[in-house]
């Protein structure tokens, strides 16, 4: 492993708590609907930050704006000190942001190792000429890329699966593979959109450890959208709560948990005549 290896993760990183991403008054309107309404948000480097909120709060829309899949209507967006407002997704990915998707979007007809290699796209040289001539440099790069891909798959806990088609993996492993793919570009920040959805408690517990390792071993900041409150509250260092497109609370898990506005968003107002959200119990009691 000379130029590409897991040890490359973490170097060339911003110091901890340095502002990695800043969104100011970021707004997204779809016609008359304001999905995200003037949200201010920052991601401190080297932390696990969560974005929570009831269904339809605008979390995924917010993700899509950060990663360039949506062009925000208004606001400012700075990532790694560069203005990324309205830039195309591949440019933002090249700056060091990568993501997973709420509904898994693996390349199903490609093998697992090829999926991870696609994630490595921005880090590979692989020019046309060197590829067609099969220059030694290009072949070495491919070899190292494949090794790194296997290492990443081991890191997320799927071993010896590289030759299987991604679509044939069990659900939990597909989620892991998607994380491996997102990590392959050695991003500064990885955005995980409901990684625990559909996972059983054991897998969720493993996921918590995985996120800590992404932060500690890879030095990669994690931004998490999650509905599984136990996971959010134990893994995150900072939590931002959205409701109806507006930020209603921000702070440490403890602060957020006891914030009346959050309790109200999840459980309804205190008039009494409300039905607890399915996550409500965990917000209220955790």
């Amino acid at each position: 492993m000379t130029q590409m290896s897991m040890s490359d993760f973490g170097h060339d990183r911003l110091p901890r708590d340095h502002e990695l991403l800043r969104a100011s008054a970021l707004t997204m309107r779809f016609g008359g609907l304001t999905a995200v309404d003037a949200v201010d948000f920052t991601i401190p480097a080297g932390r696990v930050v969560s974005l929570i909120g009831p269904n339809g709060a605008g979390k995924t829309t917010f993700f899509n704006m950060l990663t360039g899949l949506y062009h925000p209507t208004e606001g400012e967006l700075t990532f790694m000190g560069k203005d990324t407002f309205g830039r195309p997704p591949h440019k933002i990915a090249q700056l060091g942001m990568s993501r997973t998707f709420q509904n898994i979007r693996l390349f199903k007809e490609m093998t697992c190792v090829d999926n991870v290699l696609v994630g490595m796209h921005t880090k590979l040289q692989g020019g046309m000429l060197s590829t067609l001539l099969r220059l030694p440099s290009q072949r070495r790069e491919e070899r190292e890329g494949i090794e790194l891909a296997r290492e990443l798959m081991r890191f997320v806990g799927i071993h010896s699966r590289h030759a299987e088609l991604a679509g044939n993996l069990p659900y939990g492993d597909q989620r892991r593979l998607e994380i491996a793919r997102a990590l392959a570009s050695r991003p500064s920040v990885v955005l995980l959109d409901e990684p625990a959805a559909g996972m059983n408690p054991m897998e969720t517990a493993a996921l918590e450890g995985l996120m800590h390792r992404i932060r500690d071993e890879l030095g990669c900041t994690v931004l998490l959208i999650e509905h599984e409150m136990k996971l959010v509250m134990s893994v995150s260092e900072r939590v931002t709560v959205l409701n109806f497109g507006k930020k209603i609370a921000e702070g440490t898990p403890d602060e957020v948990r006891n914030d009346p506005a959050v309790v109200e968003a999840y459980l309804g107002s205190s008039d009494g005549a409300v039905v607890a959200d399915k996550y409500g119990d965990e917000v209220a009691t955790a």
Binding site: G68, R105, H121
Partner: peptide, 9 residues
């Protein structure tokens, strides 16, 4: 969509 999110032009 996923391809462009992986940095593919």
């Amino acid at each position: 969509t996923a391809a462009s999110a992986m940095g593919i032009h």
